[in-house]
Write a protein that binds this DNA or RNA. Structure first.
Lengths: 198, 198
DNA sequence: CGGTTCCTTGAGGATGATCAACGAGGGTGG
DNA sequence: CCACCCTCGTTGATCATCCTCAAGGAACCG
């Protein structure tokens, strides 16, 4: 959780419910608001001219998203939609700046948050440039495990569809499927009844 | 320029000269220092197992670089080398935090800087996922033009070798060359005596 | 059950990577 | 001033592989 809910509400934050798959903002929109997820899940993504989707990142309960353009007066480089029924609190940009100035500790939080985002984007870019599909998928899977709160020793079930993995890695579904079964053969992942374990 | 030189020196900043091509830090190093360029140019990059280089970003005179891992206690996801003879001032991580607390205005600067980095990484990721080489190269060229201080109306000469463009876009030199000559045929770039204009 | 979403497989084609060779330019030292 | 070298640019032929298109099967849910 980045900013306290009550503070957001005091400064005029607005709570809104979203169905699954609703648009929060679109690529190219001007950035007016700060968004923080109270419940649900949001993905930021791009669609290429040829219709291929690329998922930039995904945000869960308690996370804020779409802040960078607020600070540099830019248009959103990606769109955002809910991937689950969600409750999101939204606050005007200027009010956010007031909160940051009144509670400077939040600035430290924000710096850490942005630093982590850059770090993640750098590593995923590194993994993707590698044209090798297996390396891309491994990059995605390792990223998942790193962000698991419960550091289970063994394998975890990967809660993503093949299509989603494709959209994260910039590959096609069929390539993901074929690469995964090769990886299973080599013992790096496990697949049981279509469920993927890593 | 992010932090004033005299402040950095007062807090124990150390000035060091680098030849062209010297390593500042390596991928996987633990992040101990804040770096700011007084003179010269630095690139951050990764090398894939197959030996292909990918340039994550490039930093000029007056810029700091490699900060994110400082704030989240992570190893460097990329290495940094000078691409010109350079003078770089370096400051221990803890001292940087002290400066940020003593001069909170720098925190605002830092937030903007990190926001801009995320924005750039998001747009380049978007451009690269598009497997189309022309789209990738256009993404790179547009990025260049956006960051030009002098907004010349006409074409600018692109100050990068074909190999560098390849390393920025994740393509191979030959592909860059062939794609560029196709783009010249279509009038989107110009090439004169091997010099590239956009 | 019936529908929807997801997974899987095969065949074929497109295209970027690879490998090899050569050309062009610029700088340096004799 | 020339010869050499080194970096950069260029081209062609071939290959590997991911994408594309098409079809069908499996799981899940109301």
């Amino acid at each position: 959780m980045l900013i306290d809910k009550d503070i957001l509400l005091t400064w005029g934050g607005l709570i809104k419910k979203y169905k699954k798959g609703e648009v929060v903002f679109r690529e190219g929109d001007y950035a007016r608001y700060y968004y923080q997820i109270m419940e649900g899940k949001v993905k930021m993504y791009n669609v290429s001219p040829s219709g291929k989707e690329f998922i930039q990142s995904e945000f869960m309960k308690g996370c804020s998203f779409g802040e960078p353009p607020l600070f540099i007066d830019e248009l959103y480089p990606s769109g955002a939609v809910t991937t689950e029924p969600s409750v999101i609190i939204r606050l005007a940009k200027d009010k956010l700046f007031e909160i940051l100035n009144d509670y400077p500790l939040y600035k430290d939080e924000l710096i850490k948050l942005l630093a982590k985002r850059i770090y993640n984007k750098a590593t995923t870019a590194r993994d993707i440039i590698n044209n090798d599909p297996e390396a891309r998928i491994l990059g995605f899977l390792n990223h998942l495990k790193r962000n698991k709160t419960d550091q289970e020793s063994g394998m975890i079930e990967v809660p993503y569809t093949r299509q989603e993995i494709a959209n994260y890695t910039g590959l096609r579904v069929e390539t993901v499927i074929r690469t995964l079964s090769k990886m299973k053969k080599n013992g790096v992942v496990n697949i049981e009844q279509h469920k993927l374990f890593y």
